[in-house]
């Protein structure tokens, strides 16, 4: 499964969610499918996308929050998984694209390449719904179930270590940040 195909499969459902992504390939590929004002790309602070999603989910329980994380990113913040599990926000869907690699910095193998099981780690941390999927169809089903489950979910999607040709996009970091905050805090925006 390619990560971009997985995101493309669930893209229509993202229109009414708050979406937070990690840096690199995930951010560039989601922007190539189509940027929306309710998407925020954390282009650095590696590991903190899930924490940022938790901050939004706890602050705004009426909104559905989707985090697109990565294996090497969540490996930097495994403690954060225990914090997610501790507060179990019902409005958070945590997707980890696991390509077993630090792709954007040269493709070095991550610890999932030698058997570390992120869904198992999430489950053991106390995340109530966890699964690992390896096909687009299985991802689509798991994502839609999680979106409607009303329970914190971590979905580990096994994807190929293949990304876009370049990671810098035309969307500046600050433009994204101000647009995103305005969308979240502007009552007239279309929300869930």
């Amino acid at each position: 499964m390619l990560r971009i195909d997985a995101m493309r499969a669930v893209y229509p459902q993202l229109e009414r969610c708050v979406v937070v992504t990690i840096m690199g390939a995930v951010a560039a590929e989601l922007q190539s499918i189509g940027h929306r004002p309710n998407f925020f790309y954390l282009q650095h602070a590696m590991g903190l996308a899930s924490s940022l999603g938790l901050g939004i989910a706890l602050s705004r329980p009426e909104l559905k929050v989707v985090v697109f994380d990565g294996d090497a990113s969540i490996l930097m913040n495994l403690g954060g998984l225990t914090t997610l599990a501790r507060y179990k926000p019902k409005n958070l869907v945590h997707v980890v694209f696991d390509n077993e690699s630090l792709l954007s910095v040269g493709g070095f193998p991550s610890a999932t390449s030698t058997g570390s099981d992120l869904a198992g780690i999430a489950a053991a941390a106390g995340v109530p719904r966890t699964t690992t999927v390896g096909t687009i169809d299985a991802f689509d089903v798991a994502f839609n179930e999680a979106l409607h489950a009303d329970e914190l979910s971590t979905i580990v999607a096994k994807v190929k270590a293949q990304g876009p040709a370049k990671f810098v996009t035309d969307l500046s970091l600050l433009e994204n940040r101000f647009q995103f905050k305005r969308w979240l805090c502007d009552d007239t925006s279309a929300k869930v």
Binding site: L48, S51, G55, L58, G80
Partner: peptide, 9 residues
């Protein structure tokens, strides 16, 4: 990260 999310929200 949590404070950034809370601020945006």
């Amino acid at each position: 990260g949590i404070s950034m999310g809370a601020y945006f929200a």
